[in-house]
Simulated scan of single mutants.
Amino acid sequence: MDQKALLIFNPKSGSDSISLEELSERIAMHLKQAELSIFQTTGENDADKIRKEINKHNPNLLLVAGGDGTVKLVAESLQAQLPIAILPLGSANGLAKCLGIDLLEDGLEALRHLKVKNVDGIDINGELCLHLADFGFNANLIEKFEEQGTRGMMGYIKSSFSQIFETEPYRYLIKTKDENWEVSTRMLLIANGDRFGTGAIVNPGGSLDDGKFELITLDVERLEHLFEVGKSLVSGETPIGESMKIWKLDSCKIENLDQVNFQIDGELKGQPEEVSVHIQAARFQFVVK
C-alpha cells in the first residue's frame, strides 16, 4: 500500500535548528516513495484545522515536528487511531525520549522501519496527559520559567537544584476505589512516561503501554535523599529510602489540600481543588526507534 503521510510542523519549535524545506527533504530521504502533505500550526484553531487536514488527505501516518505540546495537540485532534511519528524540535521532548527518540536524527531514522508501539493516555479532569503531570516542585518551576522567560535545559537544571530545597512539602488526599490516604510531599507526580525531558529517569520501571499510571512522591530533605534521588534519575533504579514512593494505579482522585500549582505535559493548569485521573489503555500508536 502506498504511504500517505501528513507532516504537522510547528514553526515556533526549534525554528532556528531546521527549516521546513530542509526537514521535508530529509523526510523524503528516509520515507521513500511516500506522498507527503504539510500543515503548519499557527496557534489559532489548530486542533480543528488538523482534523480537517486529516480528513482531506486521509493519511496512514502522521509526522509531528515540534515539542511535547505539539504532539499533544495532534493526539487530541485524532478522531481515529493513526500511527504518530515524532520528529523532536522542542526544548525538552519528554514523550519522544520515553519512546527512544532523543534527537531529530532518531526520529528520522525511525521512519525507515516504522516500528509502532501502543501507548496509553491518561485522562485528567477530561484533559489528555501523554507524558507527565504534577503538583508542586516541577509545576512551580514551569511557573517561574513563564514569569522570567527562562528556556532550555541549563535553565531547568539550575532552577531545579535551587528550588528542590526551597519548596515546602504540601498535603494531598489520594482516593482510590479501595482506600484513601494522605501524603505530604514536595512533588506529587502522575507519570505515564518514565523520564523528564532532560532524560532524568523519574519513574523507574514505568511503561507507556502497561495500562497503568504511576503516582510518585519525590522528597529531598537531607543530603542523603539528594544522593538517593540523583542515583535514580541517572540509573533508573528505584531508590531505597524515604525520598521516593511509587503507587501503580489505573484510576484515582487527588484532593489538592494546600492549593498547589498543577501542570499537565508542561502546561500550567492553575491550582485545582481536585483532579480525577483515569488510564486510557492503548489509546494511541507511536513510532519508536
Rank of each mutant, 00 (worst) to 15 (best):
S232M: 11
E214N: 14
L223R: 11
D194N: 09
G199N: 06
G197R: 06
E228N: 14
R171Q: 11
G206L: 01
R222K: 06
L173R: 04
D209I: 01
A200I: 07
I201R: 09
T217L: 03
E224A: 12
R195C: 06
F196T: 13
L218G: 00
S184C: 11
D219A: 14
L215R: 01
N180I: 05
R222E: 04
I174T: 05
L173M: 15
S207F: 00
R171M: 11
G206W: 00
G193E: 04
G206Y: 05
E224F: 13
G211K: 08
T185C: 09
L223P: 15
E228G: 12
R186M: 15
T176V: 11
L218E: 02
F213M: 13
S232I: 03
L188A: 08
R186C: 15
I190P: 01
L223Q: 14
W181Q: 02
Y172F: 15
H225Q: 11
A200R: 01
E228A: 11
I201F: 07
Y170D: 09
E214F: 09
T185N: 06
M187C: 08
G197I: 01
L189N: 01
V220D: 03
I201G: 00
N203K: 13
P204T: 02
D210Q: 02
Y172P: 05
L226D: 02
S232A: 03
K175I: 10
D210S: 07
F227H: 05
L188S: 07
R195Q: 10
L215T: 00
Y170W: 11
